[in-house]
């Protein structure tokens, strides 16, 4: 068995947290070769080579790979897949875009959002917004897998793997990058933050969401939102925590004005400590919270911000 791990590389930088966590999962399946692809990928490849447990790093550099476009990236991975039994990636939006395309090119099923590896063919994954966990056994000759990063510890540094340059297939030219609108922010990245402060429908408006953001900044936390808050236009979609958004497992998760719909719980219930602030004492969020405060968020949140001094 041999595993190809498609590393998270954005604008030449390695997504270290996601890649290191997926590496831990990938190593359970066999020796791991990491693929770093991008317009520039050599710095990312050097960083990946230092992760403990990496056998080899493949570096693929080509302008067509520059913006993680699915068609050239999937063509590259499918080409390299020949030498591997398992093709694995962290379950980021980039991998969710690319990996099913890779699977179809190889005529195999995708195994998305895997949370546990039972053996080389058998995996656990959540379905129905985390309401059920399914154990599935794949009969395909190759497995294409995305790993939910919250289920795996990040692999430490300490490796010194050789780096090899690989040729890149010709760009099929089906799509072109136009622009990225990356929210400029000094806040930590949502999926790897130590603390996440999230707001829900109870926050009431985009304007009021500033309360959530101020508390987050005080704590050095990332900002999250429930699907209801995103749906109502209070917060951007990339803040969404839940089954249809991001899955997070920080040390501290503070849910403010969030009722606790199952689809939200699916995205945060693995957090170490959960705090809920909600004026409705019947809100289901209190059933998963370690510390619940029944209070009006418009009073409690500014007070909390002040008292964190």
């Amino acid at each position: 068995m041999a595993v190809l791990l498609f590393a998270e590389v954005t604008d030449g930088h390695l997504g270290r947290d996601a890649t290191a966590k997926a590496l831990t999962g990938a190593r359970k399946l066999g020796p791991v070769t990491v693929l770093c692809a991008g317009a520039r990928a050599s710095a990312a490849a050097e960083e990946a080579a230092k992760l403990s447990g990496v056998e080899k790093v493949l570096c693929a550099e080509d302008p067509s790979l520059g913006h993680r476009l699915a068609e050239p990236t999937a063509a590259l991975i499918a080409e390299l897949a020949r030498d591997y039994t398992h093709i694995v990636a962290p379950a980021t939006t980039d991998a969710k875009n690319v990996m099913p395309r890779v699977a179809a090119l190889l005529d195999v099923m995708i195994l998305p959002d895997v949370i546990a590896i039972i053996d080389a063919d058998t995996f656990e994954r959540p379905i129905y917004a985390g309401n059920a966990i399914q154990t599935v056994k794949s009969s395909d000759p190759k497995k294409v897998i995305t790993l939910r990063t919250t289920a795996f510890e990040a692999a430490p540094e300490g490796g010194n793997a050789p780096i090899e340059t690989v040729p890149v297939p010709a760009d099929p030219g089906l799509s072109a990058w136009v622009e990225d609108k990356v929210a400029a922010s000094d806040r930590p990245e949502l999926t790897s933050a130590r603390i996440v402060v999230s707001g829900g429908r109870g926050v009431g408006s985009e304007e009021n969401f500033k309360l959530i953001e101020r508390l987050a900044d005080k704590l050095g936390a990332a900002v999250g939102a429930s699907r209801a808050a995103v749906d109502s236009g209070y917060a951007p979609n990339d803040w969404q925590v839940g089954q249809t958004g991001k899955v997070v497992a920080p040390e501290l998760y503070i849910a403010i004005g969030i009722s606790g719909a199952i689809q939200h719980l699916a995205g945060m219930k693995d957090s170490k400590i959960i705090v809920a602030i909600n004026k409705d004492e019947e809100a289901p969020i209190f059933q998963v919270a370690d510390y619940g405060l029944v209070a009006d968020l418009f009073q409690a949140v500014p007070e909390l911000e002040k008292k964190l001094g």
């Binding site: 099923m109 959540p126 056994k137 009969s139 004492e281 059933q287 919270a289």
Partner: peptide
């Protein structure tokens, strides 16, 4: 291509304190 061997409830999380 995938055989479902088993479906189970997710691990619950106990409510803490108010």
């Amino acid at each position: 291509r995938l055989t479902v061997l088993k479906t189970r409830e997710p691990e619950g999380r106990k409510a803490g304190i108010k």
